[in-house]
């Protein structure tokens, strides 16, 4: 087995793993916060939004493809649960790709506004706040644009604000829990 083949296989496995993690968290979110959903694609709390920031920054292209693949299965599940789509597979793929592309837009704007190291060693709280807001805004706008252009009957402002609030809230919750877990379960010393 050549080294290049091993690299490609490793990359594919990484994408699959990231996609599965996204799918698992999104499915759990859909189940736990189903009463906070405006529609199946807009939740007032959306936990995977934190992964939408982490995946592209840490894993780059693999992270983006992980989001797309995970989102594909999430949307497929929602269709199986009764979500109506106009164009079936095309719409599922479109929604999935949008979910993966949205953070790229947010991160691109973030890099225009802030200068950070490529190894992410100098990220601060304000950077996470900016990343969360920008990725949430780009996701909300992209989804809103898509639904409007594809002829779905939506309330643009309500949809965009629900997605934005959901992404920001999900990011805050996940990052807080992760920070708490890293502090208390992997901490070297507490005083």
């Amino acid at each position: 087995m050549t080294a290049k083949f091993k690299d490609i296989l490793g990359w594919v496995l990484l994408v699959i793993g990231l996609g599965l993690a996204w799918y698992g968290l999104a499915s759990a979110n859909d189940y736990v916060f189903q009463h906070l959903a405006l529609n199946p694609n807009a939740h007032l709390i959306y936990l995977p939004a934190a992964l939408r920031i982490i995946y592209p920054l840490v894993f780059r292209e693999a992270g983006v493809f992980g989001i797309i693949i995970g989102s594909y299965f999430v949307v497929q599940d929602r269709v199986n649960d009764g979500l109506r789509l106009n164009d079936g597979l095309l719409e599922i793929v479109s929604l999935s790709v949008m979910s993966g592309l949205a953070p790229l837009i947010g991160i691109a704007i973030f890099k225009m506004l802030f200068t950070t190291k490529p190894d992410l060693a100098d990220l601060k709280t304000v950077h996470f706040f900016a990343l969360g807001s920008l990725c949430a805004a780009s996701n909300a706008l992209l989804h809103n644009l898509y639904y409007t252009l594809s002829g779905h009957a939506v309330l643009p402002l309500e949809l965009a604000s629900t997605i934005f609030i959901g992404d920001v809230a999900g990011t805050v919750i996940v990052l807080s829990l992760l920070s708490f877990a890293l502090t208390f379960f992997i901490s070297r010393r507490r005083v």
Binding site: D119, L120, T183
Partner: peptide
């Protein structure tokens, strides 16, 4: 060359850990 994924992951986890308001000491 860009730093490898595991370096970025460790740095990000370290940064996320520092978001915690609970003060701890590093080594």
């Amino acid at each position: 060359p860009p730093p490898p994924s595991f370096v970025r992951l460790l740095d990000m986890l370290n940064t996320i850990r520092q978001l915690s308001p609970f003060d701890t000491l590093n080594a």
